[in-house]
């Protein structure tokens, strides 16, 4: 009970209070403390990365072993992992004790494989937007109809044709963004800030313990 409940709650309380205090203390001692905590976080992050990779590889190894659906893709996970780690450790003949050599094989892999692949995913977003917009803009309710009209005005107002017809159209489109849209955004933001404070207090004072597996 002590290790699984009391200690984590006590740590959350102490570091929660320190975290809040550091925000209001500009003194160098406080800032140095914050940097130290951030350093600890980076160390934990480094160890956690090993756990993460171990989890990823175990998952794909199990998939390959069981010949689960799509197990062939798991082979590429291992190939990618081994090749990238191998070239990183080799470091163009300087090995891993020296700083990474730029423009080497790892950079080549990033620029010629990872970068185009992620860019492709990002580019696909355009088609996803079109698909989602088509579904949303079917004016089946009053709300959907308002959304449709507002979206058409804003989209059209941002094109050069709108200003050619009338200066009022881009102005109205901008008004929609700057007034009703911004008002709603701010309302949401207030709720988010208050929710953050409330959640933080619940965790700092040990009232919310679901992150420890429930009450």
């Amino acid at each position: 009970m002590f290790w699984k409940r009391t200690l984590p709650v006590a740590i959350a309380f102490i570091f929660g209070i320190i975290g809040v205090a550091l925000y209001y203390i500009p003194h160098q001692v406080a800032q140095d403390g914050l940097n130290t905590f951030n350093g600890w976080l980076r160390i934990i992050q480094g160890f956690a990365l090993f756990i993460g990779f171990a989890s990823l590889l175990r998952l794909h190894w199990t998939k390959m072993k069981r010949k689960s659906e799509g197990w062939g893709y798991s082979i590429f996970v291992f190939i990618g992992f081994i090749v990238t780690i191998g070239f990183s450790l080799y470091n163009e003949g300087h090995y891993f004790l020296e700083s990474r050599v730029s423009d080497g094989k790892v950079d080549w892999i990033y620029l010629n494989i990872v970068y185009p692949a992620t860019s492709t995913m990002f580019a696909m977003l355009a088609f996803f937007v079109a698909s989602a917009a088509f579904r949303t803009f079917r004016a089946r309710s009053v709300e959907a109809a308002i959304l449709l009209i507002a979206a058409v005005i804003v989209m059209f107002g941002k094109t050069p044709f709108a200003a050619m017809i009338s200066d009022s159209i881009p102005e109205f489109a901008q008004w929609l963004l700057a007034v009703p849209n911004l008002a709603v955004k701010r309302a949401l933001y207030f709720g988010i800030c208050l929710g953050s404070i409330s959640t933080s207090l619940r965790i700092i004072f040990g009232i919310e313990r679901s992150y420890l597996g429930g009450e």
Binding site: L188, Y189, G195, S196, S198, E208, E215
Partner: peptide, 25 residues
């Protein structure tokens, strides 16, 4: 949306103490 994310845990658990924090919020 927004704050509902933070209220979700309290809402699902229905624990009075957690619900109290929503009221305070």
């Amino acid at each position: 949306m927004g704050e509902e994310l933070y209220a979700a845990s309290a809402y699902l658990s229905r624990e009075p103490k957690l619900l109290g924090s929503i009221k305070g919020q």
